[in-house]
Write a protein that binds this DNA or RNA. Structure first.
Lengths: 137, 137
DNA sequence: CTTAGTGCAAACTGTTTGCAGAGGG
DNA sequence: CCCTCTGCAAACAGTTTGCACTAAG
């Protein structure tokens, strides 16, 4: 029941923290492999699961796509790019939403909420502009 | 380029509308099979995709799990049950969130947002109470 | 020592795709 | 008649799991 601190776990956690990004399991796997070439993807998945269950990292399950993990566990919201799928933090005043004031006719007991913005990130917008003299999509 | 109204498409749409629920592709497949036993799951997926691209139905990509489809296309928010995964509409005043006022240091052009509540639905709470004298999980 | 964690391969789930034939407009 | 749509099977992506071995505490 008690969580051991293995070298794999340590590196995975450190890489996620140092990245300052919202990485997927396989992005993290690619990074960790550089220091630990024999690590397996399954180990990365297992550790991310364990760490997020322990509340040491956050798991982001955004919009039906790949899960992403977040070294920042304090409550905050996200925005993702419809084009390149990257996810960034967004500054949104969570006081605006009061879960207690929300009507739920189905009798839910509300335990939390997430605000998820979507849009096009600046680098994707730049790429669009560049090729705006050929195909239109 | 033009969308034909096939009998498959018609039944899928009607079943979704009549259900007044947020069904997954395979839930819909099970329902449609009763009227059209030879329909394939791929057809259901393809039609749901086509219909949602045409704006006739909505696609719900909630929290990393299975996609769900919604016959109601006007902008509204959802709540899902952490236990049984069901998804319901929730009455939330979308005027409270002003995307234009949200800070995005990464230079996103924001095109939309979703508020996603989570909790335990009434029937799952009832089930919990019933078995509250045996195992603790 | 004990038992949680690992690497590997194989399984699994949800979804997409190539293809040849069917049927809507 | 054309071309979108279908059913089927096979492929695919992301994730999980069974197993025998390894290593943390």
């Amino acid at each position: 029941m008690h969580m051991r601190m293995t070298s794999q776990r340590e590196i995975i956690l450190k890489e996620l923290q140092d990245s300052h990004q919202h990485l997927t399991a396989d992005e993290l796997y690619e990074r960790v492999k550089k220091f630990m070439p024999r690590i397996s993807l399954a180990t990365v998945y297992r550790n991310l699961e364990t760490l997020s269950e322990a509340g040491i990292i956050g798991k982001l399950e955004i919009s039906g796509r790949q899960k992403r993990f977040d070294a920042d566990v304090h409550p905050h919201d996200h925005i993702f790019c419809l084009q390149c799928q990257r996810v960034d933090n967004i500054e949104f005043d969570r006081n605006l939403v009061n879960p207690a004031a929300v009507a739920s006719d189905k009798g839910y007991r509300i335990t939390g909420y997430r605000v998820e913005f979507k849009g096009i990130c600046s680098s994707c917008r730049n790429n669009q502009e560049k090729k705006r003299d050929g195909d239109e999509q």
